[in-house]
């Protein structure tokens, strides 16, 4: 091995390689997983119960505003999941990180399902408030495109006989799709849309009354932890399944030789 490569790289690269070790990942994720799951369930439960039974109704929407407590977290996770997918893709294309390939393949279906829930709950919210299940405005259309990107990634990663080629193709698709993320975020500011602009920003007070806002913070954090837990668990399973495949292949080639 080239000695310069072991000395020269700065810290982040070393960090990646530590997690690149599948054994290390299995050990660490095994410890973290129960905590992720229990914290996620607890926070989601608090948020849902608070939101459904204790938060006040919106003065115009009435109780329909309660759909916000599930719609907003899923909308956030649809985008955040895609950001994770893009990070995995960079790690895969540039650093050839084997764990990133597996994580990306496992992220795709979870992200697609969460995006589908975002679209479905949004539709269920749109009918009683706007008067329409669906409109092709810039926000709704761009989130629908995000859903298609997830589906494309799922299909592409599994489309090749040689998994490495699938991972590369999927990573490139995922990175091309990153363009869509700022479009989703700013669609409501750049163009006239039926969808309302964001209520919570980095600057200024939120435009949601505090009594309506608290449950949202809990469900957002809760569903995010659950998303992370599911993804980590699936990646764990992926690592184990790959090890099984490799061991089986080694065995068959051994028995073939003897």
């Amino acid at each position: 091995m080239d000695t310069r490569q072991t000395i020269a790289p700065p810290r982040p690269v070393k960090l990646f390689h530590r997690f690149a070790n599948p054994g290390q990942f299995l050990r660490l994720s095994g410890k973290v997983l129960p905590w992720l799951y229990s914290a996620g369930v607890l926070l989601t439960a608090i948020g849902v119960i608070w939101g459904l039974f204790f938060a006040p109704n919106d003065w115009q929407q009435g109780d329909t505003v309660k759909i916000m407590y599930v719609h907003v977290p899923f909308a956030w996770l649809a985008s955040a999941g895609y950001v994770s997918l893009a990070i995995c893709s960079v790690l895969s294309l540039v650093w050839r990180h084997p764990l990133a390939d597996l994580a990306a393949a496992e992220l795709g279906p979870v992200g697609a399902a969460f995006t589908a829930v975002c679209l479905a709950t949004g539709s269920l919210w749109g009918k009683p408030t706007w008067g329409a299940w669906w409109v092709w405005d810039a926000r709704l259309t761009s989130v629908f495109v995000l859903f298609l990107l997830y589906l494309g990634h799922i299909a592409l990663v599994r489309a090749f006989d040689d998994p490495t080629r699938g991972y590369r193709a999927g990573a490139i698709l995922a990175l091309v799709g990153v363009i869509n993320l700022p479009i989703i975020k700013f669609s409501v500011n750049w163009w006239n849309t039926l969808h309302q602009p964001a209520s919570i920003g980095l600057t200024g007070a939120p435009t949601i009354a505090a009594s309506l806002l608290w449950p949202l913070l809990f469900t957002t954090l809760g569903f995010t932890l659950l998303f992370a837990a599911i993804t980590v668990a699936r990646t764990r399973a992926g690592v184990m399944e790959r090890r099984i495949r490799m061991l089986l292949m080694a065995k068959t080639s051994e028995s073939g030789q003897s």
Binding site: D63, I67, A120, I230, A233, M240
Partner: peptide
């Protein structure tokens, strides 16, 4: 609009639950 709210919460809680159970089984 109870049916709309109920349907949303069933979806939002059901999908993560489905993934959690199926992944635990897979593991």
């Amino acid at each position: 609009h109870l049916p709309y709210i109920a349907a949303s919460y069933v979806l939002a809680l059901g999908v993560p639950l489905f993934f959690a159970i199926s992944t635990t089984f897979r593991l």
